[in-house]
């Protein structure tokens, strides 16, 4: 009950946040990315964290949603909401096929097989013509029931809604029969099977929920950016980013993935836009022409992925249970 209250309070704060910060497309854009990654990591967590099935191929479901939506809108001028529903169907079909292959495997094999399936999806989208192939799909204008989709506001609330739904599902799973079964599967598959738990059924159930939510986020992303190609929505990097967010935040917990996104997405954006280097130079703490100044302004901009790598390594070494695990220990 307390957790539901927390979700409600946070959702309430998030809902009024745009009104407080006012018209700032840049900040709203970053917040949309935070909400999207929080929801993606939470959706992944249902399969990876609760059932212990570490999928390295979640980009496939994100891409399935994004591609289905964009194809239906651009070719058939279908309503974005209906296209999104179609995206869920496609993602679930891919999930069922994937599940029937990868759930027979364990450990390393499961992770590698999920990568292979996602790569097959990516290469297919790249090679077929109806997906726009290497050129991707570009939409110039989208509207829904007369609402202007050029504005960021609908997407902010859309992402927030999906996040709240995902967290709600995650929370209710924790105390439900399915949730207990998934945890039993995570702890010991053989023991779970000997207790009479239908492994395939519950694993697939978790995968379907996770894939459907991920696909909705893919659809939202596609209509928000209005351009997709395989490197933007089907790349292995996206799958890895999702897992990193969940693990660095705290895998298997309700709030870990959200915390991961709240910390990592703004950090990545700060590194990308080099605000730290710029701020140091602008504050006059470092001279622009000095060696350090030039390094901060020129080289640090090239090094943001490097910094991201270092943070990953440090987190895995020193916070193996994620940031939430560290907080939990201190209590």
């Amino acid at each position: 009950m307390k957790q539901i209250a927390i979700i409600a309070v946070i959702a309430g704060i998030a809902a009024v946040l745009p009104l407080v910060i006012g018209e700032s497309p840049y900040f709203t854009g970053v917040l949309i990315s935070v909400l999207m990654m929080a929801a993606l990591a939470s959706a992944w967590n249902i399969l990876g964290g609760y059932a212990g099935q570490y999928s390295f191929g979640h980009a496939a479901y994100f891409g399935a949603g994004a591609y289905t939506t964009m194809i239906l809108i651009s070719k058939f001028n279908l309503n974005p909401i209906l296209s999104m529903v179609a995206g869920i169907v496609v993602a679930c079909i891919i999930a069922l096929v994937t599940g029937s292959i990868v759930f027979r495997l364990r450990g390393h094999y499961f992770g590698l097989a999920s990568i292979a399936v996602a790569e097959i999806v990516r290469l297919s989208a790249l090679n077929f013509d109806f997906t726009g192939g290497a050129q991707g799909i570009l939409l110039t204008d989208v509207s829904l029931w007369g609402v202007d989709l050029n504005s960021k506001t609908p997407f902010y609330y859309g992402m927030l809604l999906v996040l709240v739904v995902t967290l709600g599902i995650a929370l209710s799973l924790r105390t439900s029969k399915t949730g207990y079964y998934l945890q039993a599967i995570r702890e010991d598959q053989d023991a779970a099977a000997s207790l009479g738990i239908n492994l395939a059924f519950y694993k697939n159930k978790a995968l379907l929920i996770s894939a459907a939510l991920t696909s909705v986020l893919g659809s939202l992303y596609a209509v928000y950016i209005r351009f997709i190609d395989t490197s933007a929505v089907l790349d292995l990097r996206l799958s890895i980013e999702i897992i990193l967010t969940a693990i660095i935040g705290g895998v298997g917990t309700v709030w870990g993935p959200v915390l991961g996104a709240v910390l990592l997405v703004p950090l990545a954006e700060m590194l990308r836009s080099n605000v730290i280097g710029d701020a140091l130079v602008k504050q006059g703490m470092v001279s622009e022409t000095s060696g350090l100044g030039v390094f901060l302004k020129e080289n640090l901009a090239h090094a943001h992925v490097l910094v991201y790598g270092i943070i990953t390594v440090l987190c895995i070494l020193y916070l193996p249970k994620g940031i939430l695990g560290l907080l939990g220990r201190k209590k």
């Binding site: 840049y26 970053v30 950016i225 933007a232 836009s273």
Partner: peptide, 22 residues
């Protein structure tokens, strides 16, 4: 003011919006 997009359209959009609004 230089901004990196890493070839990712999402980052390019963020960069453009930062440049014009901030």
């Amino acid at each position: 003011i230089k901004e990196d997009d890493g070839g990712d359209p999402k980052n390019a959009l963020a960069a453009y919006e930062k440049l014009v609004t901030r």
